[in-house]
């Protein structure tokens, strides 16, 4: 039975069938990988590049990054501070969800893009204080609409930077490569 199956596979038709099966599996895997690399669906198609082009600093909307662990995502009140003075906000279809959120008082449910696993305790403040700029990890926001992750946040990537920045300072190196600095 099995021998007959392998004999059939060696026929030209069988080889074509094998080829199709392999291609199908490859495409499914490639599509699966592709979907994980897409920025998530957001309630508003927020254009980062437009806001950066107006000269708005990252820390204006994400002020938590300079103060503590979480950078924070602004509420509609902060958006409205500027947008209620912009005539286009009243008519734009893209901005309709913002107008509706302000009028009804229900928060906009932004989907976080840059996330680390639960067992990693990340603190923005220490990184900003160490002189890192937002774009070093989050990519150039002048080029994207919805935020994307230019790199996967994994431990090797974190440690590469930690070791490089510690340099010759042994105390700093011990602190920056200690398991307990990020995992607890």
């Amino acid at each position: 039975m099995i021998k007959r199956f392998f004999d059939w596979l060696k026929q030209p038709l069988g080889l074509i069938a094998v080829g199709i099966a392999v291609l199908t599996l490859f495409s499914i895997a490639a599509y699966g990988l592709y979907t994980t690399q897409q920025p998530p669906e957001q309630p508003i198609q927020f254009p980062h590049k437009t806001h950066v082009a107006f000269g708005i600093q990252c820390l204006y909307c994400h002020p938590g990054a300079a103060r503590g662990p979480a950078a924070g995502i602004p509420t509609q009140a902060k958006c409205w501070g500027c947008h209620n003075q912009i005539v286009k906000t009243q008519t734009s279809l893209l901005l309709a969800p913002l107008k509706e959120a302000v009028e009804s008082g229900t928060p906009i449910e932004w989907v976080p893009v840059a996330q680390v696993p639960d067992f990693v305790q990340f603190n923005h403040r220490a990184h900003i204080a160490a002189g890192q700029n937002c774009e070093n990890c989050h990519g150039d926001m002048t080029k994207v609409n919805i935020a994307e992750n230019p790199q996967v946040f994994n431990m090797g990537w974190c440690l590469d930077c930690h070791v490089k920045n510690a340099g010759e300072d042994h105390v700093k190196l011990v602190k920056l490569t200690d398991c307990g600095t990020c995992h607890y």
């Binding site: 011990v174 602190k175 200690d178 398991c179 307990g180 600095t181 995992h183």
Partner: peptide, 16 residues
């Protein structure tokens, strides 16, 4: 379960 050199504590690294 490793010893933290920076804080001198016994750590338990859950993901490991």
């Amino acid at each position: 379960t490793v010893h933290s050199q920076a804080e001198q504590l016994n750590l338990q690294i859950y993901n490991r």
